[in-house]
Amino acid sequence: MVSKTRLDWLALAVTGTLTAVSLVWQHREANRSSGSRPANTTLIHSARRLNRGAGILAGAVLLDSAMEHYRGQFENRAMYTPLITATLSLLASSKGFADLTPHSGKLRNGIYIGTVLTGVAGSGFHLWNVTKRPGGFGWTNLFYSAPLGAPAALILSGVLGHYAERLRSETRNIVPRVLGLPAGQSMALMSAAGLIGTSAEAGLFHFRGSFQNPAMYLPVTAPPLSAVLLTASALAGANRPHLRWASRLCLRFTLLLGVAGACFHALGAARNHGGWRNWRQNLQAGPPLPAPPSFTGLALAGLAAQRLLDEEQSVKAHYLGWHP
């Protein structure tokens, strides 16, 4: 039993706390990285961050699909697939995170590509599941049949991981490029797209939950804002330090929000009838615990991108300074 006023206060307090923590973190990080670092280390550092992001996403997908497909009684053998690929992606990511060398892992890369393909196939399956039900592509099915956004998280995990591996092999170029764009830029755009997509999914399900708790607005505001700022700072020149500062802050907020979201979802399950004692029902019927950390994974990727952007732009600035 939680009154509306208490929920309002809770949402405010959490927003305030997350902002404060993000600010402190930002401040300390700025102090720490005031000295310049060699680009190679940055690239590997970014790659590892990406690996970590990919791993968090894979972990979220693993838990989420295990629970949701259990609920769907694994009525189709293919429903085991995301469990396997997400596990592999998780393993590859932890291996990648531990890897300090500037060489891309072939096996890891293969796994990541497989993960992307599984995600694509999963999206197809889910789309088919939605359209074959009465009501077709209507709200009832968007709310309650196979969620369209869920397999996309698998795609994102694979893409992040694949990106990490590409980045490792680009360490020799002055401005590393991936998929034709400077690495920082393309990574920023990709992370932003992921944030927007995941936020859209949160929006759909929080709409289903009638935004009964004001905190439910956070994941539909902070991540898109991060995405916009990240995109802007990727496209804007080097002389926009305020923009980049805001982008980093917002990403840090989003990263923390992923963790706070899992706690909110645990609170949500507790508010369901029977609370945690009725866990066999409420773990499934309540808000999904593994869903919010997807934001953490994507925000990590965004922060890594932000860092690369900074360096790219300082390299560019360096060049411009040399040849006026």
């Binding site: 009832t140 708790n213 009838h273 019927a285």
Partner: peptide, 21 residues
């Protein structure tokens, strides 16, 4: 046409009410 029935039982938590089980 058909529609899900509008019902007086909550589909999400409300102050004193848990969502329908």
């Amino acid at each position: 046409a058909w529609a899900p029935t509008p019902l007086a039982t909550v589909s999400a938590p409300r102050e004193h009410s848990p969502p329908c089980v």
